[in-house]
Write a protein that binds this DNA or RNA. Sequence first.
DNA 1: TGTAATTACGAAAACGATTAAGATATAAAA
DNA 2: TTTTATATCTTAATCGTTTTCGTAATTACA
Lengths: 339, 339
Amino acid sequence: MVSMKDISVACGVSVATVSKALNDHADIGAETKNRVRQVAKQMGYFPNSAAKALKTNRTHNLGVLFEEDDHSGLTHDYFAYVLDSLKGAAEEKGYDITFINGCRTRHNRMSYLEHCRYRGFDGVIIVCVNFHDPEVLELVNSSIPTVTIDHVFNNVCSVVSDNVKGMRELVQYVYNKGHRRIAYIHGVNSSVAVTQRRLASFYKTAEELGLKIPDEYIKAAAYRDTKASGIATAELLELRERPTCIFYPDDFACYGGINVIKERGLSVPDDISVVGFDGIRIARHIEPKLTTLKQDTTQLGRRAAEKVISLIEHPKTTLIEQIVVEGEVYEGKSVACLK
Amino acid sequence: MVSMKDISVACGVSVATVSKALNDHADIGAETKNRVRQVAKQMGYFPNSAAKALKTNRTHNLGVLFEEDDHSGLTHDYFAYVLDSLKGAAEEKGYDITFINGCRTRHNRMSYLEHCRYRGFDGVIIVCVNFHDPEVLELVNSSIPTVTIDHVFNNVCSVVSDNVKGMRELVQYVYNKGHRRIAYIHGVNSSVAVTQRRLASFYKTAEELGLKIPDEYIKAAAYRDTKASGIATAELLELRERPTCIFYPDDFACYGGINVIKERGLSVPDDISVVGFDGIRIARHIEPKLTTLKQDTTQLGRRAAEKVISLIEHPKTTLIEQIVVEGEVYEGKSVACLK
DNA sequence: TGTAATTACGAAAACGATTAAGATATAAAA
DNA sequence: TTTTATATCTTAATCGTTTTCGTAATTACA
């Protein structure tokens, strides 16, 4: 590897001058600056990130925490898109992305925070994780610039999708299609806040529209669990007054419901309408196309990356805020018009 | 941050002793070693990766190249699972994962190789990329330990799924179900080698089984392009002697075909059987469950990580080889039994 | 013309670790 | 007892940068 030393001898100047020339300091003459840069380029010079980090305490590297017990993070269409966007936005600004983990060394296990300090991440983005994990809390409460996605802590920035508005628009959409008996199989387990917000919005909107939601219309099933959502669906179908439309925790789970509906010889949407949540890509390619709330994963990822970089580079002037990203109703073919 | 210096004063020894104690060198007394380690732990010491990297030229960080023009990498179920597995395996061995990119700095754009050198990656894994990109070739031909996934270069290690065997078993499976008129819509564009291998295996197996494949049974459609596969399907359905079973480039594209088949009032698998490729997760949750070749993404990722780490840690004794990972036929409900 | 201000550069310390070589004390061998 | 070996720890150089401070040369100003 060619270092500043090599350039300095090639140019007949000191390494200090080389450094300052490359970093565009004011106290280097224009001529020297150009010469140094030219030689650097032609010798194929690139800085050594480790040396630079050691000296400056800046790595231009972001840690991304992306872990769930069941490995449903990376392999979750929604989060994969968020990460992809995150990655793109960070790279544009010259930052790299490294996964945070509780990595093992010779000595002992590192906590998430310790791992971050070890690697010297300039900032971290917490995407998909158990937000009650004490290690996550430790990280969030640290001094490292942090942005969370889809979860809000009181003292850190967050980027969240507008679950309230999303759910409201979905309910309104379905209502406008003439549905009055609407059931909701809500998610459980992970992301409690998200679940509650959606559920609250579901109830509130229903009430505003003058709908009464009987208790037996509300079921629970784990996110992305087709079996659980299938069982809940079966229960709903057995009711004397069965719903005309069923909401699901997410698109994936929705298919569990669709399967059960079809097994019963019923058709979607002619007999029963269904709506999902998330807007995973494949739902737009399978018939019947799912009517769902399409989250703006591109914005979620991008805004998170931009925010954390802003926190890093302008800590004073960047405010701690909660950025809300709106999704939109994707109109598929899974909701019948009853009017 | 607490450094070795801090520990050395706390213990009344030199930093060299601290370093050697923590790294378990032989020339440190047992008592001192214990004391240093204990103090280190209780002071919350963790090494500074930048300093360590600067001195040792080892970062314990792997670069992963994971990029495609259409962003179909991360968001592709198949590759997402590979990455997830890769990540897990690397972490087990104490390596972190950072994405490689052609990142921009103040000065000028970095090539993939330059980025790797800048970050000092100990090794790289090339997962999903245009393998004809000159920058990729530059990286592959460099001295950095490299493993490619699903593409083989002559002088680097690779982990590939057994497309030949996979396709053979799929054809045999379908043949055993009584199908004789089998069409194949093969992929195009990316991963030419993969496509050719599957196609060749398709022809060869058919021939071995005594099947004649008329030219009009072979169509092309881009991977994961439901529209293109739909069009190709429509063409196949118009043939005088239409196939009883259609092979698709991948599961995603398969749904494009299923849609068209259903539009025509035909049923899967009663009228037309379909088989996919990859074994994406959702295909096992939507009816009719897809019969497909389920790739062993866990092994693909894990073996790649283990191989590159082996290349890094035992360069002499690790042989340059091509690791073949076998998939398996996943028996769904999309192929009818004609016997 | 003498002094102050400005410009352009260099010397050297520092970041936090590793490691070769040297030093000291103790134990074993002669 | 002297020599040699062994065990244990330290000194100091080094990795590739950045940055403070100093200095010399040039220019501006009185």
